[in-house]
Write a protein that binds this DNA or RNA. Sequence first.
DNA 1: TATGAATGAGGTTTCATTCAT
DNA 2: TATGAATGAAACCTCATTCAT
Lengths: 209, 209, 209, 209
Amino acid sequence: MGIYERKRREREQRRSQILEAAKKVFSLKGFNSATMEEIAGEAELSPGTLYIYFKNKEELHTSLSIDLLEHIGNRINQVAERNVSVDVKLDTLRDVFIEVYEDDAMILINLFHLQSGEVLKNLSEDLMNQLKETSAKALRAIKAIVSEGIDQGVLIDEHPVALADIVWSTYSGVVLWVDSKRLLNDQKDFVKSTLKQAFDILKVGLKKH
Amino acid sequence: MGIYERKRREREQRRSQILEAAKKVFSLKGFNSATMEEIAGEAELSPGTLYIYFKNKEELHTSLSIDLLEHIGNRINQVAERNVSVDVKLDTLRDVFIEVYEDDAMILINLFHLQSGEVLKNLSEDLMNQLKETSAKALRAIKAIVSEGIDQGVLIDEHPVALADIVWSTYSGVVLWVDSKRLLNDQKDFVKSTLKQAFDILKVGLKKH
Amino acid sequence: MGIYERKRREREQRRSQILEAAKKVFSLKGFNSATMEEIAGEAELSPGTLYIYFKNKEELHTSLSIDLLEHIGNRINQVAERNVSVDVKLDTLRDVFIEVYEDDAMILINLFHLQSGEVLKNLSEDLMNQLKETSAKALRAIKAIVSEGIDQGVLIDEHPVALADIVWSTYSGVVLWVDSKRLLNDQKDFVKSTLKQAFDILKVGLKKH
Amino acid sequence: MGIYERKRREREQRRSQILEAAKKVFSLKGFNSATMEEIAGEAELSPGTLYIYFKNKEELHTSLSIDLLEHIGNRINQVAERNVSVDVKLDTLRDVFIEVYEDDAMILINLFHLQSGEVLKNLSEDLMNQLKETSAKALRAIKAIVSEGIDQGVLIDEHPVALADIVWSTYSGVVLWVDSKRLLNDQKDFVKSTLKQAFDILKVGLKKH
DNA sequence: TATGAATGAGGTTTCATTCAT
DNA sequence: TATGAATGAAACCTCATTCAT
């Protein structure tokens, strides 16, 4: 391995190290209460180093979101490309959503909160584009499934982009709301079961009757 | 009018004056970027005065949310009490949601963001309870409609509380997501049309087949 | 009773009412943490009213101190004027000090803390003079006893003013120190017993041998 | 000198720099009127830097007191360990007290004022313990001298802890009272002479007759 | 005289970000 | 590249005091 390659890997590894730490701290404290110093400490690095790899706090946070979005997009694409019926695909999509939630509940919640304009203001154009693209990709993956259903006459005859939005909205809505209900009312965690139920209902609603 | 009554009205009016200003500034800047000084300026009052009427920034923000939640709850109750079929009630519920969004988009968005635990930490127990209660009330109103449908054998045979959660989740999900899509992609505002579509699909999904 | 006389009495009573409340609150919270609003509340009056009777917070606090100083001065004078030996007078003086401490520990402590220049800066010249005079009066009363002892050849041959200062210093020193020891070390209240002991030792030290 | 050692020294120096500035400003204005910004200015540092070295204003002030207390404790211990008579030790103790006053009058006065519970509220448990321990150490040093005298039958047969309290009380009492007399009556500074006199009297009072 | 809502200056503190080493 | 001490702007909030009623 050449010296250049080794350097590149080291850089890559540092980046991951920081992202891992950031994930932990953001999950625990939320965006505003998390401090760069704390993230640096968690990553066993100094605050200054964080700024070598990420332009600012917003970009660090957004990078996390992009990574998760990318992961979600990939998983959905896998579903879309499988050689099964649309009906099964919708069920599998639902299960992917649940699985992602189970893996990384807090980051997912933060991702949906990022949908607030407030955090997006300090992003560099570059990262903003990346975020847009990754987000769009995930949506396109959903749209692919929906489109297939429409083409086969299985799903209702609507604009597939709009339907994909509704699928995604249902996802974020359930996650945010049921999670916050837990905070407000000290209830148990019903996110998974509610997600399942919501998507079962949604599937019926989407079907041509 | 007695002096006592006049004083009470003046107080009430000051409070509204502050809430009105806060609504404007929070809508424009979001919770964190909005400053108490700016809100005070907008209300043509001094910063100190804000703290006579509201214990801190969080409580001022939450008061806005409570007011809106109360309004929503009332509107839903009106729907629930009408002497029409469940089918019509669901359509009217959808229209109420759309109407509320049209009246006060930014505050509604802030309300849904409040579902993040971060803002809830500095609330007095009193206001917290008020928030919980108002929130629960709105949910109960939805549940009433759903329960009626279940009892009449029109809607699917599920726990009405869970169904109410799903209805509300759909609402918050669509509002947050489609709004953020606008921010991300500079698209036009599709919230209203998407809300309509989402609830039409949801209604079908909820129906017994 | 004429209307003028009644008004005067009412004023007097309001003043006492405020002083009483201030004593309570200052004792509980100390000078800085006590707020004018809280004192007003305790006196069942409005904040504004306090400023009719006292120019500012410092003057209100100082008025309390002056009242206590006056009381101490009177009690010492009673001792000085009694027809008993200097030896007995010194013992009685000691007992007066202990008694005053028992009656109003916190105000006495505040009085000694007032000896910090910080509180004295906002006083009107008028009140400052009053404070000086009352303070000097109490000291003169002690000096009278000490002088008598010197004249009779019972006490050591020193400047009586200096000796009076030492007596008073011992008083304030023990009260402040033993009280703070309680705060620091959660010890029991040894002020009274230590006062007794300190003055017994002091008496021996003052005596001509 | 290694890099680690140099860094440590730099840190140490910064700390001293801040303490020095704080001493100046607290002495001039007293605890409440002194502002962190002013101290920062005096130290030619930014306000934020102060908070790297001291948790808050109270801790900065208390650190000054602890340093002085430590110094006093050391000086007394030197006296206690000398190979001279108790009588000489008591005289030397008195001279140490006077010397400390001469070196740092204002900080000593602030130290005695710290004995007010008000300032102690924001202290970390750690610093609180440090304060307690340093304070106890100084007292123990006095107690050692007194105990020796009691054991040798030179001093009166009392609990040495109580006697140490009385010695310390006399110190703080004279310093605070005579200093405040200067403020009140614009008198000259009699603290040193009064201290001398007070301890001479005290010594006689403590002696077995 | 009494009220008490309103004022607004000013203080402490936090923390993202920089930069000399 | 990595460090981490230093920065300094800016925010929240308090509360003594005022003044129109």
